[in-house]
Computed example of a mutant assay.
Amino acid sequence: MTTTKQQNEKVWFVTGASKGLGADLVQRLLAEGYKVAATSRKKQSMVDLIGEHENFLPLTMDVTSNHDVKKAIDQVVDKFGSIDIVVNNAGYSQIGAIEELTDAEVKNNFNVNVFGPLNVIRNAAPYLRKQRAGHIFNIASIGGFVGDFAAFGIYCSTKFAMAGYTEALAVEMQPFGVHTTLVYPGYFRTTFLDKDSVMVPASPIEAYANAREVEAQHLKEINGNQPNDPKKAAEVFIELSKQETPPVHFFMGIDAAALVNSKVRTIELALANNLKLTESTAITE
């Protein structure tokens, strides 16, 4: 059946809500009267930050555990009666050149940034399909569209992966009236690049001077000077959730458009410069 609700009756489920974009979104949602379930590896950190509220359900959840995720989503439905808007926000940045990162470092980043959101989608989708309404926000990064940052190849690849499956998810969920939006944030002034949030390579290789330069730029220059306000991002999410036909792709941030346009020009030029060779593989009778 199709569920029709007033906007502020909708139940939001936000992962990675103990800080950053997730925490600001939860606080704004509660201030506007929404019902909100939010997750973190440490429930108390959210309670300390946000406090207790009748419309707030803080949950301890390991996004990499399908069992944990299923249990959390079932708790949301038990408390609020439904789940309407899912925000896959949990994630972290693994810095390091491709060669210098270990197998474990790479897999850990994929487990959280790629497979974690898939756990959420897998367990939320049955509820959304049944009610034939809902909205899934997958939070990627501008690095999920532009990947030419030395030392950020693995992190960007996790976000490219999310972009790929989100495009398919949007088509799969459309017949059920469920919207899907892939959000590519630029640089927001959060704790994302703080030393207790970002991961640096366990065994850096001295030869990668370019990787260390980009790493230092992000940790020492960009961190604390990001041009975008996370509180304004919270407003953007709410506005997108109100749209009748929200976009599948949404680039967010004052810095996003320039990076997107530069990538688009690069691809267009690469195609144009080799178009004859590109099309030379056609079968001719």
Results as ranks from 00 to 15, higher is better:
C156F: 09
T102H: 06
I238N: 00
V14F: 13
G177T: 07
I98T: 14
T102P: 06
Q75T: 05
G147S: 11
K263V: 01
T166K: 04
K159E: 05
L57T: 04
D62T: 14
A202S: 14
A209N: 15
Q94F: 11
V198W: 00
K232H: 08
E100F: 05
F251D: 13
S241K: 03
N113E: 01
L118D: 02
Q94Y: 13
T278S: 06
Q75A: 11
D103V: 03
K263P: 00
E268Y: 14
W12I: 07
N210M: 12
I222W: 02
S157N: 10
S197R: 08
L49G: 00
E206L: 07
K159A: 03
A90V: 12
V36H: 07
P247E: 05
P58G: 14
G144L: 02
A38Y: 13
Q44C: 03
I254R: 12
V87C: 10
Y184S: 07
K70F: 04
E215D: 05
A104I: 09
E221S: 01
F176L: 07
K79W: 00
G186R: 05
H218C: 05
E235N: 14
A104C: 06
Y92W: 13
I73V: 15
Q27F: 06
K195C: 04
R132I: 04
T180Y: 02
E221A: 01
I121D: 03
Y155C: 11
N228Q: 06
R265F: 11
N108V: 13
P246A: 09
S93I: 15
L259W: 08
M46C: 09
V171F: 10
L193G: 01
E167S: 06
N8D: 15
F80T: 07
E285S: 09
V114E: 00
F192G: 02
H53Q: 12
E100I: 06
N66R: 12
G81N: 01
A97V: 01
A151R: 07
C156D: 09
F115I: 00
P201E: 12
Q226R: 04
N111I: 05
F115R: 02
H67A: 14
D24V: 06
A257W: 11
P227V: 03
L21P: 00
G16E: 11
E285Q: 08
V36N: 10
A133I: 08
T278R: 08
A233K: 07
D62R: 10
E235F: 09
Q217R: 04
H135F: 04
V248K: 03
Q7E: 11
D148V: 03
D103E: 15
D78R: 07
V77C: 01
D68Y: 06
R122V: 02
V11C: 08
S280A: 14
G224L: 07
Y127T: 04
V86A: 15
D68K: 09
G22T: 05
F176Y: 15
L118V: 07
K263M: 05
A72D: 08
A23D: 00
A151Y: 10
P126M: 11
P126N: 13
D68V: 04
Q226D: 00
V87Q: 11
D229R: 05
R41C: 00
S65M: 12
F188T: 02
V14S: 11
N55A: 09
P58A: 13
N225C: 00
L277Y: 12
L182Q: 11
N210F: 07
T60A: 14
E221Y: 02
T181R: 10
E213K: 15
L277W: 10
N228M: 04
K276I: 11
A170H: 06
Y127E: 05
